[in-house]
Design a protein around this nucleic acid. Structure first.
Lengths: 242, 242
DNA sequence: CTCTCCATCGCCATTTCTGGGGAGTGAAAT
DNA sequence: ATTTCACTCCCCAGAAATGGCGATGGAGAG
């Protein structure tokens, strides 16, 4: 048994994650994970621009502040690339050709993020989306080899981090019970597909007025101020899919 | 090394999953996984009401057919429970009190599904959702102990199954879109947040006419027919976040 | 047996979008 | 150096969405 040794096993790290009862613990576990894998940085980032940022990891405070200040979230190829993928992705495989993306990249390296990156997308209920990211400075070959050996571990650690984040932020998904009725889902889906109200009403074989009741009702349930916002909220909560 | 033995290691199972190139292979790997864990059933189920069902595993064809015939999808507490959760869930912890749910439960047991169940929710891009389920007939204590020991493995296997399913259904993946300009992203984001055009224009400190040019331009790039559709597409492609 | 929620229908006035024109600047890319 | 593209500004008229009023019947839950 290695229980007494200074370096914990992966299982012990997962257990520690499971036992964590407050945010600060995640922060210190981040450092343990980083040391365990002997890499420069690990970072957990719950991606959402509307609510307060939810980040923990070993990146410098300066970098995190700058990331928000510059609103890099909007142009980050890591975010955009991972959002469309299921599988974790090496940063080298992303598209950094945009001007804003290159600026972000240079800024990140200047802030000591590292030259190599690997991000695991994680998704929870209601369209929740987070990234678990590893960073290091080393050769491409070393990095690829390291990833080959450890990516399963990263999947698990990412999962545990996200589980805790969801636990600590229950207000993120509170009025989930307010799901939409089947007709409301139909209406929202067709609207998201670009149908006008008249077309939706015809498609659903109901009067346009009835349709409006559904839209209003969905809008109310979603706390949206107009149809576009209702569709956006329904989409980002995973209530509809287009 | 157990490489030569008849029973594969978990790593070998994951490798086999990774190598799989067609649907039928997943079916046979399901049986290997079932035997590996010595349980009654394992099942991978891509949950989607719109497209054709996507199921593989060791449940009987009769049960799968009945599940669809009876439209149990709509009332299944496993689906409803897992859809709202991030963490895998034991079927005992779900709410089986509804009339339809109890009928489903009785029907499932009659079809040999087993008395114990454990389902892992998995989510991919664009609201993709799937379940990886384990079933067995044994005591609650045995089941709980088995799950404690193996749930990390199930997370990984579920992930690999889903990865393959997504690979085999490429039409679900949206074409990687050309990105929007910063101003277009601003416009789409604010529209998604429910701002009217006048409000967006004021927020961005531009004329409403200019704003319209951005919206039109984004709409064209996204292949959208109207603003709501453009916002929906931008959201589901991860170009904007709200 | 209520009570809530879902599904369905109607009218009117006002606000907001949409689609059709056109035009000039500066920065980046080829 | 020429082209491309992002960004900015302007007008108008018709189409579409919104807000507020109200109503009936049925299914399921407590």
């Amino acid at each position: 048994m290695r229980r007494q040794s200074k370096v914990p096993t992966l299982d012990e790290i997962l257990e520690a994650l499971e036992r964590a009862s407050e945010f600060d613990e995640l922060q210190s576990i981040s450092e343990i994970v980083r040391d365990f894998f002997s890499i420069d940085h690990i970072n957990y980032h719950w991606v959402s621009s509307s609510s307060s940022p939810y980040v923990c990891g070993t990146h410098s405070k300066a970098w995190i502040a700058r990331y928000h200040e510059k609103e890099y979230l909007r142009v980050d190829p890591v975010i955009q690339g991972c959002f469309q993928r299921f599988h974790p992705v090496d940063w080298k495989r992303l598209d950094w050709s945009g001007k804003a993306a290159r600026a972000l990249q240079a800024d990140a390296i200047a802030h000591g993020v590292g030259t190599q990156g690997y991000s695991v997308p994680i998704r929870g209920p209601n369209g929740q989306f987070a990234l678990f990211t590893l960073n290091h400075t080393c050769s491409d070959e070393e990095w690829a080899d390291f990833m080959r050996r450890n990516r399963c571990n990263f999947l698990l650690i990412a999962h545990y981090f996200n589980q805790k984040a969801l636990e600590f932020e229950p207000e993120r998904a509170p009025e989930l019970a307010q799901s939409l009725s089947p007709r409301e889902i139909d209406a929202m889906t067709l609207l998201a597909m670009g149908y006008s109200r008249a077309q939706v009403a015809e498609t659903l074989s109901i009067s346009e007025h009835t349709l409006r009741v559904y839209i209003e009702s969905a809008r109310y349930k979603l706390g949206a101020v107009n149809t576009t916002n209702a569709v956006a909220r329904a989409l980002s909560r995973g209530l509809i899919v287009i």
